[in-house]
Design a binder for these strands. Sequence first.
DNA 1: AGAACTGGTTGCAATTTGCAACCGGTTGCA
DNA 2: TGCAACCGGTTGCAAATTGCAACCAGTTCT
Lengths: 164, 164
Amino acid sequence: MQFATGCMGNKLVAKCNQSPMRNEEPRSFCPINMAVEVLGDTWTLLILRDMMFAGKRHFRDLLQCEERIASNILADRLRLLTLEKVITKSEDPTHKQKAIYSLTEKGIQLLPVLVQIRIWGAHHMGKIDAVSPAVKAFNRKLERGGPELWAQMMAELRATHLGR
Amino acid sequence: MQFATGCMGNKLVAKCNQSPMRNEEPRSFCPINMAVEVLGDTWTLLILRDMMFAGKRHFRDLLQCEERIASNILADRLRLLTLEKVITKSEDPTHKQKAIYSLTEKGIQLLPVLVQIRIWGAHHMGKIDAVSPAVKAFNRKLERGGPELWAQMMAELRATHLGR
DNA sequence: AGAACTGGTTGCAATTTGCAACCGGTTGCA
DNA sequence: TGCAACCGGTTGCAAATTGCAACCAGTTCT
């Protein structure tokens, strides 16, 4: 029990609203499939988006996402991402009850995936007038930037999430 | 009714085992979210994987994927992907009952997304000994290849799927 | 002291998934 | 010609997952 903040008798209970404990065999060992088994749902990538692009690292912040994720789903996804070592959870020194979620190196290396998804989405799904000029400009930058830009962004994430 | 092959009185019935007709508003207009609303489930990306990397274009072929997708789910996802214009469906001239699924330009431009997912999966989820040397070699090639390689692969897909 | 904020949990209804059986038409082969 | 195998699915049902809204016990702010 490394982080026994908060409520509820800490009885290792974990039944409600939770995806399987991820003990099961993967459906196959294809790398794409293994990745999809972690990322392939409606919320996980949005959580990572908010951590990467919006700098959100607290439960309450992540809960405020534009798409209105439910708190039980968020809790479950954070648990799974932690289990998969895409993120880690630690205490916030400034507030006994606050948890800080950080990207691991594994998580940071998802940035190119997110970037490509964003480029594709902006290109093919984007309602032009529904996005602010600033966002549009950043999309263009991402498209032009290429691997070097991603590397730079990943370096920044390493600085803030891994303290390097 | 453009393609009335097969069975069932064509009564436009569509109730069982189907995701919503996708008439609903998106949860938000964020490009990543809009993309995730199309791609964010456990099967869609695997179908696209098989179309892109394994050249599968028939229902029966796609049904044979390693992960054993159920036929009703496959039918539903193909319907959604068609609705989203990621793929198209057409008749096979050699066989009245065969449908050919083709990637659209929108679908082909998902290749970089799939490639990044594959790279990440191979890097971070891969059981080293569970993958053939040929696949491993191709993974390395993808990693080194960069945007130029993707462009080349996309050109090949255009040739076979769009007949250009 | 009380209000507001912290990271969640709980129960329940509604939706989605997965399974297995099945369907009617088409095609290849003997 | 006849029949088996193949074609793209559909159907009904049980099980799992999602979404909602209320709630909780500590902690911090005022």
